[in-house]
């Protein structure tokens, strides 16, 4: 497969996954904002979203106040904000457009139609129709794209690069949300004041609320939430699950120069496969997650160098 084709596929799936994760995060924050709380606390959750995406400066350039409506507008439909859902869908579609011949007709039509729909609506229209419905729509379109891929695409290299993009992006997002929320909710490692609603919201944002109940059949505790999202191998948005898929797909596309990237992936996977939550917490969750995100980044970089960037002419 052409390196450029693989690159577009990889980024197409990353942007779709990013749009979905953003919709999940915004949805949960929006729902949480309706729970009785101080205005300060509410705005804190909104500014958290800006910080989570490292967009403080870009946001400050447009809005003076941090509040629900501004942040939603900025993160949902602002075409100038490259991290908005709107921009993610546009980038996903542009990447797909560049390689539409490699996608199945169904995949291309699904994504193209998603973009045409997204492009045709203003924030005011979305808001009037209930912003929650829009988030549901984004998640549904992402699911549809994933399903169409699974149901129609030949499982060759193209499929492996698409999966790699999805799983790396998801691992990064889950780690980011967990890091941030854990930090906000337990700033001093305070065991007592567990806010059920906040933890439940975090779980819901990664579709893990019911899963938690099923796995633990017990009250929600922060350590178990961390364990579920990091180490559970069967939960589709956990770090362990993502890394399982990453090394499997890396293995399938291996070429002569990808040995080191594969080794790094294997090392990271081993930590999740054999790790214990007690050790991770003792080490410091924040430090551990930061290290994890760095290594995910390096893994993406390695994939890019080994496969995606046009390779040296000689070989």
């Amino acid at each position: 497969m052409l390196s450029r084709t693989a690159d577009h596929l990889f980024w197409m799936s990353r942007y779709i996954e990013r749009a979905e994760n953003l919709a999940r995060l915004l949805d949960v924050t929006y729902q949480m904002s309706m729970v009785p709380q101080s205005e300060e606390a509410a705005n804190q959750s909104w500014s958290a979203i800006i910080a989570l995406n490292s967009l403080e400066e870009a946001y400050a350039a447009k809005y003076s106040a941090v509040n629900g409506e501004n942040v939603l507008k900025f993160m949902v439909s602002d075409a100038d904000n490259f991290s908005s859902i709107h921009s993610c869908l546009r980038m996903a579609r542009e990447n797909a457009h560049a390689v539409r011949g490699t996608l199945t007709t169904e995949m291309w039509e699904t994504l193209n139609f998603t973009w045409l729909e997204a492009r045709g609506r203003t924030f005011e229209q979305l808001n009037a129709g209930g912003i929650g419905e829009y988030f549901e729509w984004v998640k549904t379109r992402s699911s549809l794209m994933r399903g169409t891929t699974l149901g129609t695409l030949l499982q060759d290299e193209a499929y492996h690069f698409i999966r790699l993009g999805t799983l790396l992006e998801r691992a990064d997002n889950t780690a980011r949300i967990l890091d941030f929320k854990y930090h906000v909710l337990r700033p001093h490692g305070d065991e007592g004041a567990t806010d059920f609603y906040q933890w439940a919201a975090l779980l819901r944002s990664v579709s893990a609320f019911e899963v938690y109940r099923k796995v633990y059949r017990d009250v929600i505790t922060p350590d178990r939430v961390a364990e579920l999202l990091i180490l559970n191998k069967d939960m589709p948005r956990s770090l362990h699950f993502c890394l399982n898929g990453v090394i499997k797909n890396l293995d399938l596309i291996a070429n002569r120069q990808s040995g080191e990237t594969l080794r790094q992936g294997g090392l990271l996977h081993a930590q999740l496969h054999y790790g214990r939550i007690g050790d991770i917490l003792e080490h410091g969750l924040h430090e551990w997650l930061e290290d994890f995100m760095d290594r995910i980044y390096l893994l993406g970089d390695g994939i890019s160098k080994d496969f995606l960037v046009p390779m040296a002419e000689a070989s």
Partner: peptide, 24 residues
């Protein structure tokens, strides 16, 4: 067949190659 752009191709010793994930 592959759809290529100019940057996907290169010439070495008067032979044209495309850059793929598995090498030229």
């Amino acid at each position: 067949v592959e759809l290529v752009e100019g940057r996907d191709l290169f010439v070495k010793d008067d032979v044209v190659y495309m850059r793929t994930t598995q090498g030229p």
